[in-house]
Design a protein around this nucleic acid. Structure first.
Length: 715
DNA sequence: AGCACGCCGACT
DNA sequence: GTCGGCGTGCTC
């Protein structure tokens, strides 16, 4: 039998199936590997002959639902497409080793249905009292009620305690679908279209488009409800930071239960439970970040990718893939519909609609809804901020008016910390990361200098490490901390909240601040991109974009598109029907196409121009790209290897290889990085060429070669 | 990914 | 004389 192991091996290994073990393709099995044991998945019949001496037996079949063929084929496809060993992809589907080996989690107990007997002992009473905070395991109960295990055992035997359903996960029977909310005619049409697709039980891809507040979520909730009616499971992908209390609240309003969540913050026990629930089918709806795509959801009836344009769907480490694109493939193998959802769809998706590969549903603004807010530019050349400041007089004036009217404002600046660059005023020395080509960012909140690319940090030194001058550091440019300082000078006593990934410990802290904003305990929010997603603030009427040009420079072909999307998302945070929002963009380039499109509220022209430019350059989605990054601790060696790789590039008419050039982050985590870019036509067999090419090259192990198919940034 | 094997520097 | 560094190769 061929058994695929969750290791970066090029192919499945062959094991002998003995009569004592019954294992079929898809089964999780325990096999010997070297002097250890490993869990793998039976991938099919043995593909090759292995010498009898090396052939070992499958030790056991594990008690877990088998990995269905649709997922196995999906894993093979992703491995092939991304040039990743299939075992490394399988690993993403098995990320909880304990889920497969450990017995089920300790059962939880709750109060039994029988009326409390009068002759209950004092100890038994204490146990029932300990249940006030919800079901608990026998061990916890004994500890909390300070009783022996025997008391609990007797109570279970007498039905005073009965098993409680597990905390995470929704038993199929308990998932209540409430009647849907009143939908607008347009929502109804879209919802019916999606529900029909779900019932057809066949693959389809659909873009669901509409501005913030148009009601896209309610529409795809209808599609989820249809999948549940079919007895199938639904998978919703969200960018990690969009998995908010607000989203879950809306979910609960429709489904009266929590979905099974899958994200990086889960602990081992929660992961195990979520994985098991997904595999067993007990989890009817799974909501997760990109890695949830690889969960063994056996009976998939629908995949939704919300905020499909979001760059965080791109996994940049390990197996490099774009979860948005892979979701379509996953749906294809599962023969189920996929829905991409966005207010600002990516160019790729729009082009796929034009080509007729994706259907397109468009939701108009809702009646009586706050339309797109009024957007205006502040020309920073005309009205520059005072020296050492970053807010121009018109923006400060607008803030003043907003606060005077008792309304809230948001300042958006996608820069964490105090300032993006700190230098010594005496000698000009710039504080840089020792491991990366990046400046250290001062975070005064912690008195530290941080590198935003590797884990490096240091205590902010008292004197310049180069010339020894004391108190000579000068901050260059603004970060959110510095803005807060500036605001404190102009508006003493204002309630300000800074929302950045490092000022808040996890999603709960974010939700707490969001709630305070909703209760109007905050006057001004200063936030990084964390505020651009998933939240809407009805009392917020002014959005100031501190540096609208940030991200436009640097020559990345996607920079304009991304900035455009982000600014539209940020603008969409504000206002409501009776209190329209206003957005002010501080810019030094008011004539830039992105800024002009935003002011004119004309995305169409911008997208058309952007499409033309990509077409002319034969860049994605009108051409295919692959980036190869060679990295090593030794600069010369890495460069030589990259050059060698370039020399061996296939001389194919259909593919051009550019580079090597220093990669965008030339030094990262102490390694020098060089990048080659392979560019090919749309139908070109890029993977085959790459495999052929890379097969000719053997790099020493201390050099690393990473292949990024469809890179998102292509400087 | 682990893990063992193997070949060169500072210590009881 | 060893202990241990991590570079290299293998695991059916």
């Amino acid at each position: 039998m061929a058994v695929l192991l969750p290791l970066p091996l090029a192919k499945p290994y062959t094991y002998r199936l003995t009569p004592e073990v019954k294992a079929a393709p898809g089964d999780f099995v325990l096999v010997p590997l070297g002097r250890k044991r490993a869990i793998g998945v039976v991938w099919g019949d043995a593909r090759e002959r292995i010498s009898e001496a090396r052939l070992k037996n499958i030790l056991a079949r594990l008690d877990a639902p088998p990995l269905p063929q649709s997922i196995r084929r999906f894993i093979d496809w992703v491995a092939d497409y991304t040039l990743t060993p299939p075992g490394a992809v399988l690993k993403m589907s098995m990320s909880v080793p304990s889920a497969l080996l450990a017995p089920k989690a300790k059962p939880l107990w709750q109060r039994g249905p029988s009326p409390p007997a009068l002759n209950m002992s004092e100890q038994q009473r204490r146990v029932l009292a300990a249940l006030a905070s919800g079901p608990a395991s026998a061990r916890d109960l004994a500890r909390r009620a300070v009783v022996g295990a025997g008391v609990i055992r007797r109570m279970i035997a007498h039905n005073l305690l009965i098993p409680a359903p597990p905390k995470v996960g929704i038993a199929a029977a308990s998932l209540q679908v409430k009647p849907g909310p009143q939908l607008s005619p347009a929502q109804m049409l879209a919802a019916r279209d999606l529900a029909t697709k779900v019932r057809s039980r066949s693959f389809s891809a659909t873009l669901l488009e509409g501005v913030t507040g148009a009601g896209k979520t309610e529409v795809y909730f209808e599609a989820i409800a249809a999948a549940l009616e079919q007895g199938r499971q639904a998978l919703v992908l969200l960018p990690e930071i969009a998995m908010t209390a607000q989203w879950l609240e809306r979910f609960r309003a429709r489904f009266e239960a929590a979905p099974v969540l899958w994200h990086s913050d889960l602990g081992v026990a929660q992961r195990r439970q979520a994985w098991r629930a997904a595999a067993s089918g007990e989890a009817r709806i799974i909501v997760g970040a990109r890695s949830a795509l690889f969960l063994p959801v056996n009976d998939l009836g629908l995949i939704v990718v919300d905020e499909e344009h979001d760059a965080s769907y791109k996994q940049e480490e390990g197996a490099i893939y774009n979860a948005r694109d892979m979701a379509i493939v996953r749906a294809k193998f599962a023969a189920c519909p996929s829905v991409l959802v966005s207010a600002t769809p990516s160019l790729e998706t729009l082009v796929n609609c034009q080509r007729g590969r994706y259907a397109r549903l468009h939701l108009p603004e809702r009646h009586g809804q706050a339309g797109m807010p009024e957007i205006a530019a502040i020309d920073m050349r005309q009205t520059p901020p005072g020296s050492g400041r970053f807010l121009s007089p018109p923006l400060i004036e607008a803030l003043r008016e907003t606060f005077a009217a008792g309304e809230q404002a948001l300042l958006f600046l996608n820069r964490r910390g105090y300032a993006p660059l700190t230098l010594c005023g005496a000698c000009g020395h710039r504080l840089a990361c020792p491991n990366c080509t990046a400046w250290l960012v001062e975070h005064r909140q912690y008195g530290r200098l941080l590198c935003h690319h590797c884990g490096h940090y240091e205590i902010t030194p008292a004197s310049c490490p180069k010339c020894g001058a004391e108190r000579s550091f000068r901050a260059c440019g603004p970060g959110v901390e510095r803005l807060r300082e500036e605001i404190a000078r102009d508006f003493p006593g204002l309630n300000v909240a800074v929302l950045a990934s490092d000022t808040l410990a996890g999603p709960k802290a974010v939700d707490a601040v969001i709630e305070r904003i909703g209760r109007r305990q905050i006057d001004l929010v200063i936030g990084t991109q964390i505020v651009a997603k998933g939240h809407h603030f009805p009392h917020l009427t002014l959005v100031g974009v501190v540096d609208a040009d940030l991200g436009l420079m640097g020559g990345d072909l996607r920079a304009a598109e991304r900035t455009h999307q982000m600014l539209i998302q940020v603008a969409g945070r504000a206002g409501r029907a009776d209190l329209p929002g206003k957005v002010l963009l501080q810019t030094y380039a008011p004539d830039h196409p992105v800024i002009k499109a935003l002011i004119a509220n004309d995305s169409q022209t911008f997208l058309t121009e952007e499409t033309k430019a990509r077409m002319a350059a034969k860049m994605p989605p009108f051409g295919r790209l692959a980036a190869l990054i060679v990295s090593g601790a030794d600069e010369g060696e890495a460069m030589e290897a990259a050059r060698h790789l370039a020399r061996l590039a296939p001389q194919s008419a259909g593919m051009r290889v550019l580079g090597p050039a220093p990669a965008p982050l030339y030094r990262l985590r102490g390694r020098y990085r060089f990048r080659l870019l392979a560019k090919a036509g749309l139908g070109a067999p890029v993977q085959a060429w790459l495999r052929d090419w890379l097969g000719k090259v053997k790099l020493p192990r201390h050099l690393k070669l990473v292949v990024d198919i469809d890179p998102i940034s292509f400087l």
